[in-house]
Design a protein around this nucleic acid. Sequence first.
DNA 1: AGGATGATTGTTGCC
DNA 2: GGCAACAATCATCCT
Length: 161
Amino acid sequence: MAKEATRSRKRSLSPPPASASDERSTRTSSDSTVVLRVKFNEGTKRSSQLTQSGKKPKAKQKKINKKLDAKKPKKPPTAFFFFLEDFRKEFQEQNPDVKSMRDIGKACGEKWKTMTYEEKVQYYDIATEKRAEFDRAMIEYNMKMESGEYEESDEESEFDL
DNA sequence: AGGATGATTGTTGCC
DNA sequence: GGCAACAATCATCCT
């Protein structure tokens, strides 16, 4: 009941706009929102991988992540990930034998496709807000960068301590 | 023992 | 326009 009224602030991300009449053009350049979008890792190492057009680099996130959790805002989870967290709990209750995300992911993805737009839009909305927060965190991160907090030195600022 | 992978989709960003 | 890569998570596998 009143499912659309609960979350009326849908910014419309990617899902098919069944009746989406939302105009996000209200916030134009007049908002003075500086586009300080820094590209940290999204398109950095990719260039290296692109050269490897032949291999299937499906394995790399893990080690890369470890060297990235310094102080930079990581990519926010997508709507599917939020659904995963919720689905995982139920899945574990219904299938206590299956605990690996690999199996859950498959079941989750399958159900995800069966879900309707209205059901998924809820997660989309969350993901949208999360990305907005991520954007803000990114700007703040840039601010510190300019401030000279982290500069580019990933290692310890102190050479010797 | 510990690092690494595997799978799910979405989102993003450059070419 | 499209592709490539990374986002969490955790059991399992390999070294």
